[in-house]
C-alpha cells in the first residue's frame, strides 16, 4: 500500500471509531439516566394516620398496624405497615421501625422480661430501643411520630440495616 492508501485507511478507521464513540456516548447517558434515576428518587414520607392514641398505655409497647399510601412511579398502593408504639410518661410517643437493625427481621416485645427480642439472631433491646445484647449494630430505629387530636401520626420509612448509623434506605 502507498502512503496515501495508508493514510486514507487510517482516516476511515478513525472515523468509524469516532462515530461509534459519539453514538455510544450520546445514547448511553439518556439510557442510563432513564434506567436508573427514577428508582433513585428519595421520597419524603408523609404523616400517616396510625390509629387512635387512646388505648396506648404508658411504657407498654404496642404493635400497631395501619395503611400507608405508597406511590411507585405510576402506581399508588395502600400498603399495610406495622410499627411499635411506646407512650411515654410525659405524654410523648416513640414509634419504632418494625425491623431489627441487624438484618431486618421482625422483632417483638416480651412484657415479662420487658425487652424487645429479635427471633433471628437474638438481639435484645430495652424499651427505649437501646441494644442490650446480641449482634444488632445500633439501637432500634425511631420514626417521626406525634399525637394530634387523639390520633397517632407516623412518618413511616424504611432504613438500611446492618450499619452502625441509621440512614434511610
Amino acid at each position: 500500500m502507498s502512503d496515501q492508501d495508508v493514510s486514507r485507511r487510517n482516516f476511515m478507521i478513525r472515523t468509524i471509531i469516532g462515530i461509534g464513540a459519539f453514538i455510544g456516548a450520546a445514547i448511553s447517558v439518556p439510557l442510563a439516566g432513564f434506567g436508573i434515576l427514577p428508582v433513585l428518587r428519595k421520597k419524603e414520607p408523609d404523616w400517616t394516620d396510625a390509629g387512635t392514641a387512646g388505648d396506648l398505655m404508658t411504657d407498654e409497647p404496642q404493635e400497631r398496624r395501619f395503611f400507608q399510601t405508597v406511590k411507585n412511579g405510576w402506581q399508588e398502593e395502600r400498603v399495610e405497615r406495622t410499627v411499635w408504639l411506646v407512650k411515654k410518661a410525659d405524654g410523648g410517643i416513640t414509634a419504632f421501625s418494625p425491623n431489627c437493625p441487624h438484618l431486618g427481621c421482625g422483632y417483638r416485645w416480651f412484657s415479662q422480661e420487658r425487652q424487645f427480642k429479635c427471633p433471628c439472631h437474638a438481639s435484645l433491646f430495652a424499651i427505649d430501643g437501646k441494644v442490650i445484647s446480641g449482634p444488632a449494630p445500633r439501637a432500634l430505629d425511631t420514626l417521626s411520630a406525634k399525637i394530634e387530636s387523639g390520633k397517632v401520626l407516623v412518618k413511616f420509612e424504611i432504613f438500611q440495616v446492618g450499619t452502625t448509623k441509621k440512614a434511610a434506605a
Binding site: P30, L31, G33, F34, L37, P38, G73, W74
Partner: peptide
C-alpha cells in the same frame, strides 16, 4: 422496566415514562 402490560396500568405506565421519568 417501567411498562405494565395490563389494561388497568398500561396507559398510566406509558404516561409515567412520557411525563415523569427522566429522558
Amino acid at each position: 422496566m417501567y411498562y405494565a402490560p395490563t389494561p388497568d396500568h398500561a396507559y398510566a405506565s406509558v404516561k409515567f415514562i412520557e411525563e415523569v421519568a427522566p429522558f
